[in-house]
């Protein structure tokens, strides 16, 4: 029997793929203080779901297009120097609300909505897996390819210019990567919790990291552990899978920070 025929195997692979891409990207989201940016992009994806259902196209296409559009809009606005926290708050919640209202007009799909808000990892198909891993590998590849340029731009844009990098282009690459992660993560943890998979593993890894590379690798490990452990716990306790994965990540964050505090006070 093909192991992918079992829904738990597919769910584990889906969670792993999303976590491995989201966590290192999340490090940049944390370093560059783009947390709200991730939220806005993720919330816009619900509007993408509504549009995809209305026009009977693939959910992936709708979500990717909408999150890409939102990510680019927000990048453009932030470069013009608007007060971003307020503006992102307006855009993020408006996009979510418009998406929810739009879905309600499509009477026959109301049942599906929960799956897109909170994810439905147990319903991942083989085709979904292909998309998730394709997107995840693309994001990981982008990050590896641009690593030095991204890191230099994150530290200081002028340093990047002086080294011959273009920080605007690097930001665009992060924006595109973010939109891809949102698109592939929506079936796994849902629009409301995607930002958690970006930020919590990275924040947890910070406690034990001395260099950016270690933090990214550790974040990927923490993300993957949360995904697999969360899946097992959700299966055992019959809890919703996406939120359970995020709970595990939050617990790891708390444990690592307590560990750091304790070991720092001993030193």
């Amino acid at each position: 029997m093909n192991p992918l025929d079992h829904f738990l195997a597919r769910a584990a692979l889906a969670g792993l793929g999303v976590a491995l891409a989201a966590a290192p990207l999340g490090c940049f989201v944390v370093w560059r203080r783009m947390a709200y940016f991730g939220d806005a992009t993720a919330h816009a994806s619900i509007l993408g779901v509504a549009l995809a259902l209305a026009f009977s196209t693939s959910i992936w296409v709708g979500v990717l297009a909408m999150s890409m559009l939102m990510a680019l809009t927000v990048t453009l606005l932030s470069n013009r120097g608007y007060a971003m926290d307020t503006l992102l708050g307006v855009i993020a919640h408006s996009a979510l609300a418009i998406g929810l209202v739009a879905v309600s007009f499509l009477s026959d799909v109301r049942i599906d909505l929960m799956a897109y808000l909170f994810g439905d990892i147990l319903a991942v198909s083989k085709f979904d897996l292909l998309i998730i891993w394709g997107g995840a590998l693309l994001v990981i590849g982008l990050l590896l390819w641009r690593w030095r340029a991204l890191l230099t731009s994150t530290l200081n844009p002028d340093l990047a210019y002086a080294a011959g990098f273009n920080p605007d282009r690097e930001q665009l690459i992060l924006t595109v990567a973010l939109a891809i992660v949102v698109a592939v993560a929506i079936k796994v943890v849902g629009a409301l919790l995607i930002a958690a998979l970006l930020i919590i593993p990275a924040a947890a890894a910070r406690a034990l990291s001395a260099t950016p590379e270690k933090m990214a690798a550790l974040a990927a490990g923490i993300g993957a552990t949360s995904a697999l452990l969360g899946l097992v716990i959700a299966y055992q306790l019959d809890t919703p899978t996406g939120p359970t994965i995020v709970c595990v990540a939050a617990m790891i964050f708390a444990l690592l920070n307590v560990y750091r505090l304790v070991s720092a006070s001993k030193a």
């Binding site: 944390v30 370093w31 560059r32 203080r33 994150t154 530290l155 200081n156 340093l159 990275a202 924040a203 910070r206 990291s209 001395a210 260099t211 950016p212 270690k214 933090m215």
Partner: peptide
């Protein structure tokens, strides 16, 4: 060069 405290380096 303001290093964000979340960035270990």
């Amino acid at each position: 060069l303001r290093i964000d405290p979340t960035l270990p380096i």
